[in-house]
Computed example of a mutant assay.
Amino acid sequence: VSDVGQHQMIACRYARFKQSKSNITSGGLGTMGFALPAAIGAKMGAMDREVVAIIGDGGYQMTIQELATIFQNKTPVKIVVLNNEHLGMVRQWQELFFEGRYASTVMTNPDFVKIAEGYHIEAVRVKDRKDLKPAVQAMIASSEPFFLEVRVEKEDNVFPMIPSGASVSDIRLK
């Protein structure tokens, strides 16, 4: 499950879905904050399926209070936050289409791991790529709710993308 942003593009591009009806997203409708509550609902509706919410740090802060729902209902949803300390997609658009005139895209984030632990949810932070695979394996192996924060480059861009109002033939690859 993803909401919108760079993390959505990464999830759709790199996830290896093994079952139909496995990708839940708000599409391009601009709904930051969709992923976590949608993941809880998806898990409650299909307890036999693994549900992973892939969220950017901005969207996660919009619905972080849903950790209480996960804790109270013991809903074994997995949460992956790709943290670049920015509203990443907004920053990318400002860089590429607005001559780098940045406005209100830098995030000041709390300690997400401590917050998850405060709700008795196992939590791990990954800063180095070498630590990512074992952390993902631990998350998937867990039968409990699990929070994984992945620190990513602050100003990386994600492609391909289509500029606003453009056609598919105008796709940007860099």
Rank of each mutant, 00 (worst) to 15 (best):
P76R: 10
Q19N: 11
T31M: 14
G165F: 15
R129Y: 06
L36Y: 12
K133L: 15
G30F: 01
F34P: 00
R151M: 15
D131H: 12
T75Q: 06
S169H: 11
S2V: 14
V77I: 07
Y102Q: 12
F17Q: 10
V168L: 14
T105S: 12
V4S: 15
W93M: 15
H120D: 15
N84V: 02
A116G: 11
M32I: 06
K127R: 12
S22R: 04
S143Q: 11
K130I: 14
Q19G: 02
V90R: 06
E155V: 11
V136I: 11
K21R: 01
I55V: 14
R151D: 14
L173V: 07
R151T: 09
E144W: 05
V158W: 01
D131Y: 05
S167C: 12
V136Q: 05
M32D: 03
M107C: 08
P145H: 05
E66R: 07
M107V: 06
D111I: 06
A135C: 07
I162F: 12
P163W: 09
N23F: 12
M107D: 07
P110H: 11
G58M: 07
T105V: 14
D170C: 02
Q72R: 06
I40D: 13
N157G: 15
A42H: 03
I171L: 01
P145C: 06
L29G: 08
N83C: 08
